[in-house]
């Protein structure tokens, strides 16, 4: 058996717990013992599920360690890391949870997991100075309406029909905090400096922020927000997002 063929057989046996042991393995006492090959299977499994538990701590608390371990095991079985960067592992775990039948009784679970995935992405994202309000002050209202803004490299905007931010915040201490209102939330996860911040935006600013993050102009986003909610305050919403460091710049093509 050549090197590549042997290694392929080893990998296949490693990934399928019920597969027979690969040929050609041995031990000091002669034939290899299954418990020894199982150490490698276990290392792969434990390493990946441990990485998920570290990244998705609130999700684990919401479902309990045993349920989480089963869900993580099911994910890891079919989703191996695409690169040696374990810091990225689990980016699509929230989508897997959304389709995981036993978790359907907790419909808010995928969004809480999305928030946790965004937290780690923000932690490792490129550093960048937030867009200062003074850079926008130079534009006339007409010019301002045509601008599109670059989200901060660490920023994720999560639009949830559930209070995903409040649920996440309630699980940050050892004591469970109360969730004041069960309502939809738009959550901004961003790291302007070294601390990752999680903000629940005012309800009336959610659509505006989402359209800006999707690449819409300030004018179009404001118009849509006003149509949805007549009391929408463009100035307050924009200053609010800038204060939270949601953006890092203005798209070059927009700058006259």
């Amino acid at each position: 058996m050549d090197f590549a063929t042997g290694q392929h057989a080893f990998a296949q046996a490693l990934l399928h717990a019920d597969a027979p042991l690969p040929l050609g393995l041995t031990g000091a006492g002669g034939a290899v013992d299954a418990a020894r090959f199982a150490v490698y299977r276990n290392n792969v499994h434990v390493g990946l599920t441990r990485a998920l538990a570290q990244r998705f701590g609130v999700t684990e608390r919401l479902v309990g360690a045993e349920f989480f371990a089963g869900m993580a095991r099911a994910y890891a079985q079919d989703h191996k890391p695409s690169s040696p960067l374990i810091i990225d592992y689990g980016d699509d775990f929230p989508d897997f949870i959304a389709g995981f039948e036993p978790a359907q009784t907790l419909p808010y679970l995928p969004d809480v997991a999305r928030l946790e995935a965004a937290w780690t992405r923000a932690y490792h994202a490129a550093d960048a100075a937030p867009l200062a309000f003074s850079r926008l002050a130079a534009f006339t209202p007409e010019a301002l309406a045509t601008l599109t803004l670059k989200p901060h490299p660490s920023a994720t905007l999560l639009r949830s029909p559930y209070p995903a931010g409040a649920i996440w915040a309630a699980h940050q201490g050892t004591e469970l905090a109360d969730i004041e209102a069960w309502q939809p939330e738009t959550v901004l996860v961003v790291r302007p400096e070294m601390a990752v911040n999680v903000h629940v935006l005012p309800a009336s600013d959610g659509l505006f922020a989402a359209l800006l993050f999707a690449g819409g102009t300030l004018g179009a986003a404001a118009e849509a927000a006003l149509t949805e909610e007549p009391t929408f305050d463009f100035g307050a919403a924009l200053v609010g997002l800038l204060t939270l460091s949601a953006f890092a710049g203005i798209h070059q093509g927009d700058v006259p």
């Binding site: 050549d2 090197f3 042997g6 290694q7 080893f10 990998a11 990934l15 490698y40 191996k80």
Partner: peptide, 24 residues
């Protein structure tokens, strides 16, 4: 080794010691 065409296997896996593997 830890990388295979199925992805990163997240463990330090063993290899046989032969002239072929030594060259590789």
């Amino acid at each position: 080794w830890s990388t295979h065409d199925t992805g990163f296997l997240n463990d330090l896996l063993p290899l046989p010691y032969t002239p072929e593997t030594l060259a590789r």
